[in-house]
Design a protein around this nucleic acid. Structure first.
Length: 460
RNA sequence: GGCUCGAUGGCAGAGUGGUUAUGCAGCGGCCUGCAAAGCCGUGUACAGCGGUUCGAUUCCGCUUCGAGCCUCCA
């Protein structure tokens, strides 16, 4: 069955045809800048990329999945006095920039584990690839598409006639805009390939280069590492939609300069998770991260489920109520799955429908609606429902098979006595006493539920 | 100011030129001494105004509103 994916570059959904004919697919995903924790909006994009990878695998491709770690400091702004994020983080915490990077890199991968996101096949750090970045800058320089200012080596975007096509940038419109500060740049869209260290201070992260001591610009990192691991033209490049106008436009410009390619055959972008009708932002200081959800007793997989409920190409409005409703739905599904018998086989009709949905530009929302159909179906045996749902879950990653109802908690003697007293009252049909016992238990934080096998006690 | 994208029921969110999305919440019922869970059933929607069409929520235009980018940003 044909896999069809929306390509931002073409602005349309295209049937997927891999570049190589050996069954492999090159997938590059822009990773985190590790100067702080990821927030759940960031994480939504990695969930989307994980589903993309799983759908590619469902289509029998072997996915070479590369994710970068931006551990080089990058400027807060392009102005000369801009502070560096890594160095700023170091100053804030009293740790070195290198330690900061390690701490947040580790936290990032913990977040991915919580969300059942598959580990990339290649994880590459910018600081481990300085040589490759310098080489790439030299290649661009050889094409005479760079110039040097007092603070760095810049890419001259006016030398690229197709600059900004990905974002359909209107260069003249940008120039008319009031908010663009050029500084020493020749064009508003020009960007730094290499930044010089300030002459009077020692940076924690700096390297020698043909242009002087300094550090690489952000955009060259992705181009250089993607090319190193996947070649100058590979299949799919992903990132958040905010990368379309700047970061990805610049990556493409760099690749055009170096290799005459647009770097990736497909450009795919994850949309935002909004809170209070606004984008969640690291720089605004206050944001929700995975640990915040966990601390509030939320299940990370419920968040993954929430992400899957919507199409990756539409913004989600996040609220605690929304997460709660996703969580309720997921738990019902888990319970149902748990109670279904094993030993069935995957239902072909549902399998085909599932593939048609996820192959249609990752329509996970229809795939999840299909689960409801399946579970309510009168035509599929219970054991087959379980096998089919289990097969769906290889792509959805909800870890249904790993879930089990919470074990019965240890109950203090005092509570057991109350429950027994209530049972006695019930058998005596003394409903008032039974209800009082229920109220007393509730006051102590326990709920009693009557089942055919007798009363069960749960903490509230 | 420029550019890009969007607007679906109480909430979240699919989809479609004429026909049930789905989930959560709500309501009614079954079950239960009561309750919880579960099961069955059920209402309300396609921002506004024009246009194309036999017919538009779906296509086109305008208006209004919203988000994003233009500064690091998923």
């Amino acid at each position: 069955m044909t896999l069809s994916l929306y390509d931002t570059y073409a602005r349309e959904q295209r049937d997927f045809v891999p570049i190589k004919d050996d069954g492999s697919v090159g997938l590059y995903c822009c990773g985190p800048t590790v100067y702080n924790y990821a927030h759940i909006g960031n994480l939504r994009t990695y969930v989307f990329e994980d589903v993309l990878r799983r759908v590619l695998e469902l289509n029998n491709y072997k996915v070479d999945h590369v994710v970068n770690i931006t551990d080089v400091g990058h400027l807060v702004s392009d102005a000369d006095d801009g502070e560096d994020k890594m160095e700023k983080g170091a100053a804030r915490t009293g740790k070195t920039a290198w330690e900061i990077a390690d701490i947040y890199t580790e936290a990032f991968f913990e977040d991915l584990q919580h969300l059942n996101i598959k580990t990339p096949t290649v994880i590459c750090k910018a600081t481990d690839h300085i040589e490759e970045q310098i080489t790439a800058i030299q290649q661009i320089e050889a094409k005479e598409m760079t110039y040097i200012t007092s603070d760095g080596v810049y890419f001259d975007t006016s030398r690229d006639p197709d600059y900004g096509y990905l974002a359909r940038l209107n260069i003249e419109g940008l120039q008319e805009g009031a908010r663009v500060e050029k500084g020493e740049k020749r064009n508003p869209t020009d960007f730094a390939l290499w930044k010089f260290s300030p002459p009077d201070e020692k940076r924690q992260m700096e390297w020698e280069s043909p242009w002087g001591k300094g550090f690489p610009g952000w955009h060259i990192e992705c181009s250089a590492m993607a090319t190193k691991y996947l070649g100058p033209l590979f299949d799919i490049h992903c990132g958040g939609k905010d990368h379309i106008p700047i970061h990805h436009s610049n990556e493409i410009a760099q690749s055009m300069a170096c290799y005459g390619t647009r770097l990736s055959n497909y450009w795919m972008h994850g949309y935002f998770l909004q809170t209070d009708k606004a984008k969640m932002s690291k720089s605004s200081g206050d944001f929700l991260r995975m640990q915040t959800l966990i601390d509030k007793g939320q299940d990370p997989i419920a968040y993954r489920f929430l992400c899957l409920l919507a199409h990756y190409r539409s913004d989600i409005n996040f609220s605690w109520d929304t997460l709660e409703s996703a969580s309720t739905a997921l738990n019902r599904m888990r319970n149902t799955y748990f109670q279904l018998p094993d030993g069935g086989k995957v239902d072909d009709t549902y399998k085909t429908r599932f593939i048609s949905f996820v192959n249609d530009d990752l329509n996970t929302s229809r795939a999840i609606a299909l689960i409801q159909d399946l579970l309510k179906s009168n035509d599929v045996a219970d054991a087959d429902k379980k096998a089919t749902l289990s097969w769906f879950d290889e792509t959805l990653g909800l870890q249904l098979a790993d879930w089990a109802p919470a074990a019965k908690a240890e109950v203090p003697e005092e509570i057991t006595q109350l429950v027994e007293a209530r049972q006695k009252a019930r058998s005596d049909k003394d409903w008032a006493a039974a209800d009082k016992a229920r109220d007393d238990l509730a006051a102590l934080g326990y709920e009693v539920v009557d089942t055919p096998d007798g009363p069960e006690v749960k903490t509230i």
